[in-house]
Design a protein around this nucleic acid. Structure first.
Length: 700
RNA sequence: GCGGGCGUGGCGGAACGGUAGACGCAACGGACUUAAAAUCCGUUUUCCGUAAGGAAGUGAGGGUUCAAGUCCCUCCGCCCGCACCA
């Protein structure tokens, strides 16, 4: 099948891992490039998206400002030709350093001369056969094939540049043709050195001597602060790079051979897939009428169910009858399009449908207006330039056709990490499932064959390396709550988490502990009774409300690992309180209250256990229907605080003082401390900095 | 090559510029047990010291500050994205 270039990762299909090769085919595209500028500019409005993702999209769209201009051409004998060669450049300031032109192997000029030159035809085939992976491209040497034409320099009479077909020129970018200035471009200098082309420096640091400034095997690339100026460039000499660009652009525009142009790296989105599982592209090919859209009343086009997968290729193509239809326009026998849409087409607007799932029409604008944009979107960073770019485009396109209400579908984006796991392999190099690996005396063995295993890296779970965990087995043994708790507990959600057996065990033990704690709190606690005013009971009550305050903030900020740490702290506080001798009514009430707060707090992360515990505690209304509790502000603030005491920036002591104590008073108390006097060693304090309720630093 | 991110105990990781190492895992010691598991209690950055206490410490080096894991500069290492984009 065919893929969009976003879906090619390291020269392989993003999903199938199959090697990708280039071929020329007729395919369907969605014109995402019409939105290049908009998609780029609007990135600045997405202030609740990770900077990383916005940057990736910015780079992928790849805007560049340059100049498109054309060279007059002549043949080998110097006779003028009718056609011109159009190139795109962002470095028109270096035009006097030009020493060659190059076109892609697919360029019209290369095609034309290949018809009569078998060597060129062969060269074009070789370039086409080159793989698309980065390794291949990097290893491939720059190669050119000299064409029998020359480009006339626009500003220098009599100067002509050789024109090559070259393997490094991309047909899909700019004009598929360029002029090379070896002195100021890495790629161009490699090419020039290989083919013995002139290297003329035309930009030099301000203080360099133009007469002797020379280029070796590295081009001179202007850095910030160089204040570089033009040399060897006729009327441009002495200008800065921006000045020279402006001047050249203006002259070429005046000459009618060039125009300023913004170019994008983004290509149109190839959506044709030669597969059965997808929405059929609703088009009909008629010999007389050409391409005819399927009429609205015939939509959607339904896939046939009697297909076979016994042959390679698209089953729709092989189906005996499905593709044969009458042309909706002229009624003659016609052929139905058998390509289906890329799955990303569907995922580009499902959220719009979700706003009105029972509607007869795909999307209702009122519902979309009410719900959109999505407040919080969560997904893996692997979608940074696939799903997340396509959806942004699709929303805009649907808005234009009156189907949707917003430009940006996702107001806030959070990119979560992946689950990773250790890898194990036998001496023969065979990957082994973690379930089959066994740790004995610090070494890993195959559980069934007893073979010694080597531990490989901790990697993204993948079928090929077999470092996967069967979710069914986890659910069977520990339950879904334990699995959730473990995944949320150890690692911040934006990072990859390593799945470890001991970590899961730990989570599972904690679920048991919570269950016991709730029962103990029920036994020793009480729902009513007087509020605790002093002692351990008040301490526990404070701990519960502080935990609640912290967890509320952490959950809102998606800091699940920290919420869980707070819940552990409260569980520890509850455990110690249960061991206290205090069983007076205020303590009984505090125990019960702490247990209830604890259950409500872990409910979002372990819903099943929470419902069970909630019922144990005597509640009829389920947790899901219970509002999130609110911490009592009076209990969050302490009336005593621990203040660290530093001498010359080193911690020497700490003191418990009343909250909000006057600076002068704090200073007096602290200066009397033995530890402080010892550290000062007879010196007088020069300065005392008191940060209220936090820290004191004495400079001596 | 360009762009971005990150370097903190044995491990995962906490720390509005203000007591580095919360919480968990692992390890070790103890209680309970005929024993083990489970559970409970404790220890656990490193070095010196029986202890009290002291010294060093967030990849390396410098700087700003009363105070730096956090801010600034230089370097080293790792990870991610893009990659012949003219």
């Amino acid at each position: 099948t065919v893929l969009a270039n976003e879906q090619v990762i390291d020269g392989r299909g993003w999903r199938s891992n199959a090697l990708v090769e280039k071929r020329e085919l007729a395919q369907w595209f969605l014109k995402i490039t019409d939105y290049s500028e908009e998609l780029l500019e609007a990135l600045d409005t997405l202030d609740r998206w990770p900077e990383k993702v916005r940057l990736m999209q910015r780079n992928w769209i790849g805007r560049s400002e340059g100049l498109r201009f054309s060279f007059a051409l002549e043949d080998e004998k110097g006779a003028a030709l009718d056609e011109r060669l159009t190139v795109y450049t962002t470095r028109h300031d270096t035009i006097f350093g030009a020493s060659f032109c190059a076109v892609s192997a697919d360029h019209d000029l290369a095609r034309k001369y290949a018809e009569t030159d078998p060597g060129l035809a062969q060269f074009r085939r070789e370039v086409a056969a080159l793989g698309t992976s980065e390794e291949t491209i990097e290893r491939a040497e720059k190669q050119g094939y000299l064409l029998p034409v020359y480009a006339r320099h626009p500003f220098r009479d009599g100067v002509r540049l050789p024109v090559y077909a070259a393997n490094f020129v991309l047909s899909g970018y700019g004009e598929g043709a360029l002029f090379g200035c070896p002195a100021h471009d890495q790629r161009d200098i490699e090419f020039a050195r290989k083919y013995g082309l002139p290297v003329i420096p035309v930009v030099a640091p301000k203080d360099a001597d133009a007469a002797i400034f020379a280029i070796g095997d590295e081009p001179f690339l202007e850095k910030e602060g160089d204040q570089a100026v033009l040399i060897n460039s006729d009327f441009l000499n002495g200008m800065t790079v921006p000045q020279a660009k402006e001047d050249v652009a203006r002259r070429m525009e005046a000459m009618g051979i060039g125009e300023r142009r913004v170019n994008f790296r983004l290509r149109d989105w190839g959506v044709s897939r030669q597969r059965y599982w997808g929405c059929p592209i609703p088009a009909i090919h008629c010999g007389k009428c050409g391409i005819v859209p399927v009429p609205k009343q015939d939509l959607p086009v339904i896939l046939p169910e009697d297909v076979t997968f016994d042959k390679p290729g698209n089953p729709l193509e092989h189906h005996p009858t499905w593709k044969h239809v009458a042309c909706p326009r002229c009624g003659r026998a016609a052929r139905r399009e058998t390509d289906t849409f890329d799955t990303f087409v569907d995922s580009s607007w499902y959220f719009a449908r979700f706003c009105s799932p029972h509607s007869d029409v795909p999307v209702t604008e009122d519902a979309a207006k009410y719900w959109m944009p999505v407040d919080q979107y969560i997904g893996g960073v692997e979608h940074a330039i696939l799903h997340l770019l396509y959806s942004r485009f699709y929303s805009r396109a649907m808005k234009r056709t009156g189907h949707f209400a917003v430009d940006e579908p996702f107001a806030s984006l959070f990119t979560q990490g992946m689950v990773i796991h250790e890898t194990y392999r036998t001496e023969a190099g065979e990957w082994i499932f973690p379930a089959d690996a066994e740790l004995r005396d610090g070494r890993w063995f195959h559980a069934r064959t007893g073979e010694v295993l080597t531990i490989g890296g901790v990697e993204k779970m993948s079928k090929s390396k077999r470092n996967v965990i069967d979710p069914e087995a986890i659910l069977e043994r520990y339950g879904a709550d334990t699995a959730r708790w473990f995944m949320l507990s150890d690692t911040p959600p934006e990072r990859d988490i390593e799945w470890t057996e001991s970590g899961v065990e730990g989570a599972w033990r904690f679920t048991q502990r919570l269950w016991r704690l709730v029962h103990d709190a029920l036994e020793h606690g009480e729902a009513g009774g007087p509020l605790p005013a002093t002692g351990e009971a008040l301490t526990l009550r404070r701990a519960a409300h502080k935990a609640l305050h912290a967890v509320t903030g952490d959950l809102n900020g998606l800091r699940f690992n920290r919420s869980i740490a707070r819940i552990y702290e409260l569980a520890n506080a509850l455990t110690s309180a249960l061991q206290s001798d205090d069983r007076a009514p205020p303590m009984r009430r505090a125990l019960r209250e702490a247990a209830e707060i604890m259950v409500l707090m872990f409910a979002p992360m372990m819903p099943h256990l929470a419902e069970e515990c909630w019922q144990v505690l005597g509640h009829v209304t389920p947790v899901v229907e219970t509002p999130w509790p609110v911490a009592d502000p009076a209990l969050i603030a302490d009336d005593e605080v621990t203040i660290a005491v530093q001498v010359n920036g080193k911690r020497r002591d700490e003191v418990r003082l009343a909250k909000g104590m006057e600076k002068a008073e704090v200073e007096a108390i602290v200066l009397r401390l033995d530890s402080v006097r010892r550290a000062l060693d007879g010196r007088l304090p020069k300065k005392v900095i008191v940060v209220p309720d936090r820290i004191v630093n004495i400079v001596g």
